[in-house]
Computed example of a mutant assay.
Amino acid sequence: MTDTAILHIPGQDKPLNKKQKEFNLLSETIEALDRQIAELKHAYDEMLRRMPAELDPLVREYQGIRADIVNLWDRAYEAEHFRNAYQTKLSYLITENAYDLIKNHGLTDLKAVFNKYSVVPADVLLEEERRREQVRINDPAFLLESENEPAPDVAFHELSKAEQERIKAARREQRMDERIREAQQAKTTKSVRSVYMELVKTFHPDLETDDAEKQRKTETMQRITKAYQDNNLLALLKLQMELEQIDLSGLENIDKNQLSYYNKILRQQIAELDQEKILVQQQIAAACGLPYQHANSMVTVIARFNTNINELKAEIKNIRKVYANWLVPSQLKAYLKPFQIPEQPDDHA
């Protein structure tokens, strides 16, 4: 029996029964999931490899043009062409965009411009946000509170709706990252460990006194350990069957209880692999914006990543045209005249 052959009960003289058909379907599903997860991990690694050279420079370029527009608005505010209502709208646009660029994109040079139009300085607002970020929210939505954590400085229900949603989103992302790290660190699943431990009990060589048998068990344990480290349940089950002297054709004749045991282990492995796949899909979604349910192949993932790059290039081309138009005061006025300041909490204006 080879390590690469799929676990499959061959149909011979009579049709397969229900449990045998389930065994074949489960083993095929596991191999398909293993291939898909490996492909998705490769797609994610490929995105990470390409980001520094292909995506990040475009993001910096786009945000840099936004900063140029903020400075343009600042100059326009002082110009004689813009008064009263125009200045109110410019002040709003400057503070909103400058604060986003400072906070989320590290463009700290805009602090001076922001502080000209905000009652509260940028550093004060940033410190308040940093402090809120450290507050432990005592709310069931987060499921993050531990018995040893200090009481929160601000109750969750006392925060604004926008702040509640922002914190929830941040915590969800944090928890997703933690689960992904845990899945990467814990390379083996429960189903793999359970089969592995059964094999170790039987074939660990340390307590063997016969030299020839000890050598045989040592070689067997090396194969068992490799399958365990590869998180390869099917390889472990093949080893288990091989060591119990059950070949692939013999699977057709094993008793129902043994087959039920194998099917139970296979179902457990599928559930664990499904969860691992979702975690990788969510990781991909966070990196490229593809809905995680749609991240099913490397072709789809990389196509979305390429689309993001092309869309960002188009946005850069468009925002450059906008900036060039707004250098003409009449064009900027034409934009500002119908612009309405949205209703919002008075956070930093």
Score class of each variant (00 low, 15 high):
residue 247 D to C: 05
residue 317 K to L: 10
residue 346 D to V: 15
residue 118 S to M: 03
residue 107 L to I: 13
residue 99 Y to T: 12
residue 297 S to V: 02
residue 260 S to C: 06
residue 187 K to T: 14
residue 200 V to I: 12
residue 278 I to C: 01
residue 216 R to A: 04
residue 340 Q to M: 11
residue 212 A to D: 06
residue 94 I to Y: 00
residue 342 P to A: 09
residue 27 S to P: 01
residue 114 F to P: 12
residue 306 N to K: 12
residue 246 I to C: 02
residue 164 Q to A: 09
residue 93 L to G: 01
residue 214 K to H: 06
residue 332 L to T: 03
residue 122 A to Y: 00
residue 248 L to F: 10
residue 333 K to W: 05
residue 290 L to F: 02
residue 263 N to E: 03
residue 343 E to F: 11
residue 257 N to W: 03
residue 221 M to N: 00
residue 210 D to P: 04
residue 53 A to T: 15
residue 217 K to C: 00
residue 271 A to M: 10
residue 300 T to N: 03
residue 103 K to C: 07
residue 160 S to Y: 04
residue 39 E to I: 06
residue 67 A to N: 07
residue 301 V to L: 00
residue 188 T to G: 12
residue 6 I to F: 06
residue 58 L to R: 05
residue 206 D to P: 00
residue 21 K to P: 01
residue 132 R to E: 13
residue 319 I to R: 03
residue 185 Q to Y: 08
residue 152 P to G: 15
residue 101 L to P: 01
residue 327 L to Y: 07
residue 60 R to S: 13
residue 8 H to K: 15
residue 206 D to Q: 10
residue 111 K to P: 11
residue 6 I to M: 11
residue 101 L to H: 02
residue 318 N to F: 08
residue 290 L to G: 00
residue 3 D to W: 00
residue 210 D to A: 04
residue 347 D to R: 14
residue 34 D to I: 04
residue 177 D to F: 09
residue 72 L to I: 03
residue 1 M to W: 08
residue 163 E to N: 12
residue 4 T to A: 14
residue 227 A to H: 02
residue 62 Y to V: 05
residue 336 L to N: 01
residue 327 L to T: 13
residue 340 Q to C: 07
residue 341 I to P: 04
residue 280 V to T: 05
residue 326 W to Y: 14
residue 50 R to H: 07
residue 176 M to C: 06
residue 332 L to Q: 02
residue 234 L to W: 00
residue 191 S to K: 01
residue 14 K to T: 15
residue 194 S to W: 04
residue 327 L to Q: 15
residue 339 F to Y: 15
residue 343 E to S: 15
residue 270 I to S: 05
residue 111 K to H: 05
residue 112 A to V: 14
residue 212 A to I: 14
residue 136 R to M: 14
residue 111 K to A: 09
residue 14 K to Y: 07
residue 142 F to L: 08
residue 207 L to E: 13
residue 157 H to Q: 15
residue 212 A to F: 11
residue 14 K to C: 10
residue 311 E to S: 07
residue 138 N to P: 09
residue 251 L to Q: 03
residue 73 W to Q: 02
residue 116 K to T: 15
residue 302 I to Y: 01
residue 174 Q to S: 10
residue 319 I to D: 08
residue 169 A to E: 13
residue 291 P to N: 03
residue 264 K to Y: 06
residue 344 Q to K: 15
residue 10 P to I: 03
residue 337 K to S: 12
residue 9 I to Y: 02
residue 248 L to E: 07
